[in-house]
C-alpha cells in the first residue's frame, strides 16, 4: 500500500496497541478446546457429552450459524436456503458422527480450497472483526448439537 501520512511513531504506537489487544483477547480464553483427530473423524464429543438433536435442528436453520446460507435440506418451513454446498438430506447416511464432527470442526482438513468455514477454529485467520476475534464460529456445545441433528438426517 502507499505510505500513510502518519508518522513512524504513530505506527509504532498502533503496533503496541495491537500487540496488547492480542494479549487481552488471548487472556479471555474463549478459544476452542483441544480435540483428537483419528482417521477421517473426531471420535470423541467436544463437550464429553452427546448433543441435542432438537437444538441442533434449530441451530442449522438459524441464519447466524450460517449453515442454511449455503446448504439446503429437508426444511420445508424455510424459504431462503442456499445452493453453494450439498443438500443436507441424507447426511446421516453419508457420514458417521465422527466424520460429521470433523467436517464441522475443520472442513479444510479434507480440502484446503473448500469454501466451508472451519467452525471450530480461532487461529490462522486474517482481519477477523472485533466482535469475533479469538472465538470459533460455533461453540463446542453447538457443534455437538448440530452433529447430533445431522446424524438423524437419513433417507
Amino acid at each position: 500500500m502507499w505510505p500513510p501520512r502518519s508518522s513512524r511513531r504513530t505506527r509504532a504506537a498502533a503496533a503496541l496497541i495491537a500487540a496488547s489487544l492480542v494479549f487481552a483477547t488471548g487472556a479471555q480464553a474463549e478459544g476452542p478446546v483441544p480435540y483428537r483427530i483419528a482417521g477421517d473423524g473426531i471420535p470423541e464429543s467436544l463437550t464429553g457429552a452427546p448433543g441435542d438433536a432438537t437444538r441442533g435442528r434449530a441451530l442449522v436453520l438459524a441464519r447466524t450459524t450460517t449453515c442454511i446460507l449455503c446448504h439446503s435440506g429437508p426444511f420445508p418451513e424455510t424459504r431462503f436456503q442456499g445452493d453453494l454446498a450439498p443438500d443436507l438430506t441424507g447426511a446421516g447416511n453419508r457420514w458417521s458422527v465422527s466424520q460429521l464432527r470433523l467436517r464441522l470442526v475443520d472442513a479444510s482438513h479434507f480440502n484446503p480450497e473448500t469454501i466451508m468455514p472451519s467452525y471450530y477454529r480461532a487461529d490462522g485467520l486474517v482481519r477477523v472483526g472485533r466482535n469475533f476475534a479469538g472465538k470459533p464460529i460455533l461453540s463446542a456445545t453447538e457443534i455437538e448439537d448440530i452433529v447430533a441433528f445431522l446424524a438423524t438426517l437419513r433417507d
Binding site: I115, P117, L125, V126, R127, V128, G129, K135
Partner: peptide, 11 residues
Amino acid sequence: EGQLNLACTNC
C-alpha cells in the same frame, strides 16, 4: 478474510 475465512473470489 474474517471469521468465515472467505475471499471475494470464492463467491
